[in-house]
């Protein structure tokens, strides 16, 4: 009986909670894969994002100087060098508010790659890298102030294989 009541309450609570979800446009990040990197070697971390249905955000290279580009800022760390961030090309799209104008935007799913390179001296283990994705969304009739989505991903650093030992050339034996 208690189980039945609890289930009913949970069901409706979940429904209510769902309604309390983010209002308006949102960009969400999918859990990033844990990338294993060898000390001193570079690796790419793919970060996947999703723009809510019905909205678009500017690409990293919007077509107007007045538009706010989507930019991922990764916090510098002492152990891992953060390299180049690679953004996907946006789609050229027209919207109801400006049918003659093409905007370069991201809609739906898009991926941003971050190059990381742990220092040779860094200890092996798991490290968390944090940052923010700044974006500005619009729909067909309105725009929304820029937002910053917190981003984090794990980098697992593995020990570099030991350097091959040099065998000293053996001097020929004199017989």
């Amino acid at each position: 009986m208690k189980m039945l009541l609890a289930s009913a309450f949970l069901l409706f609570s979940a429904w209510a909670q769902d309604d309390l979800g983010p209002q308006g446009p949102a960009v969400k990040m999918a859990p990033a894969p844990v990338v294993t990197v060898v000390q001193g070697k570079p690796a790419t971390v793919p970060l996947s994002f999703r723009v809510s249905s019905g909205y678009h955000i500017n690409s990293n290279h919007p077509k107007s100087e007045f538009l706010i580009p989507t930019v991922l800022k990764v916090e510098a760390t002492t152990d891992i060098v953060i390299g180049r961030t690679t953004y996907p090309e946006g789609q050229d799209m027209s919207f109801a508010f400006a049918p003659d104008e093409k905007l370069n935007v991201y809609t739906g799913d898009f991926k941003v790659d971050v190059l990381v390179r742990p220092l040779r001296s860094v200890q092996a283990g798991k490290y968390i890298v944090r940052g923010t994705l700044k974006y500005q969304a619009c729909d067909n009739a309105a725009c929304y102030p820029p937002k910053q989505l917190p981003v984090s991903f794990d980098v697992k650093i593995a020990k570099a294989p030991p350097a091959p030992t040099k065998n000293p050339a053996q001097s020929p034996h004199a017989h």
Partner: peptide, 10 residues
């Protein structure tokens, strides 16, 4: 309005 707002421009 805002400069980044396309609909505002219309």
């Amino acid at each position: 309005w805002a400069t980044y707002c396309g609909p505002c421009k219309i």
